[in-house]
Simulated assay, not measured.
Amino acid sequence: MSFVISGSLTYINLGLVDGFVGIWMIGWGKSFVVAYPTLLLLFPIVSKLAKAICKE
């Protein structure tokens, strides 16, 4: 997800400039450093919340 979003935002902000892929990869690396630990921390909480809301 962070890969697609960082690519989309790079394109929106810069367009197809020279070095686009390199700029995108730098942006993706930075976003992945934030996104992955956030996923690991929040997934159990969100999962429990969803199970509590959707009890059968």
Results as ranks from 00 to 15, higher is better:
Met1Ala: 14
Ser2Pro: 02
Phe3Asp: 12
Phe3Lys: 08
Val4Asp: 07
Val4Cys: 09
Val4His: 11
Val4Pro: 11
Ile5Gly: 14
Ile5Phe: 15
Ser6Cys: 04
Gly7Tyr: 03
Ser8His: 02
Ser8Ala: 15
Leu9Trp: 14
Thr10Ala: 02
Thr10Gly: 01
Tyr11Val: 05
Ile12Phe: 15
Ile12Tyr: 03
Asn13Thr: 08
Asn13Trp: 07
Leu14Asn: 09
Leu14Ala: 15
Leu14Tyr: 08
Leu16Cys: 03
Leu16Pro: 14
Leu16Gln: 15
Leu16Trp: 09
Val17His: 12
Val17Leu: 12
Asp18Phe: 07
Gly19Met: 02
Phe20Gln: 01
Phe20Thr: 06
Val21Ser: 06
Gly22Asp: 04
Gly22Arg: 10
Ile23Thr: 05
Ile23Lys: 07
Ile23Asp: 05
Ile23Val: 09
Trp24Lys: 01
Trp24Glu: 04
Met25Val: 13
Met25Leu: 12
Ile26Lys: 06
Ile26Gln: 11
Gly27Lys: 06
Gly27Ser: 02
Trp28Ala: 14
Trp28Ile: 05
Gly29Ile: 00
Gly29Leu: 04
Lys30Phe: 13
Lys30Asn: 01
Ser31Asn: 02
Ser31Lys: 09
Phe32Tyr: 01
Phe32Arg: 04
Val33Arg: 02
Val33Phe: 03
Val33Tyr: 05
Val34Ser: 07
Ala35Glu: 05
Ala35Cys: 09
Ala35Ser: 13
Tyr36Cys: 14
Pro37Val: 10
Thr38Gln: 11
Thr38Asn: 03
Thr38Gly: 14
Thr38His: 06
Leu39His: 15
Leu39Thr: 12
Leu41Gln: 07
Leu41Asp: 06
Leu41Lys: 14
Leu42Glu: 11
Phe43Val: 15
Phe43Lys: 08
Pro44Ser: 00
Pro44Phe: 00
Pro44Tyr: 05
Pro44Cys: 04
Ile45Glu: 06
Ile45Ala: 10
Ile45Met: 05
Ile45Cys: 03
Ile45Thr: 05
Val46Ser: 11
Ser47Phe: 13
Ser47Val: 09
Lys48Asp: 15
Lys48His: 12
Lys48Met: 07
Leu49Pro: 00
Leu49Gly: 01
Leu49Asp: 03
Ala50Thr: 11
Ala50Cys: 06
Ala50Val: 08
Lys51Cys: 07
Lys51Ser: 12
Lys51Leu: 13
Ala52Trp: 01
Ala52Ile: 01
Ala52Cys: 08
Ala52Glu: 02
Ile53Ala: 04
Ile53Trp: 08
Ile53Val: 08
Ile53Pro: 09
Cys54Lys: 13
Cys54Ala: 09
Lys55Leu: 04
Lys55Met: 08
Lys55His: 08
Lys55Pro: 08
Lys55Gln: 13
Glu56Met: 12
Glu56Tyr: 07
Glu56Gly: 05
Glu56Val: 12
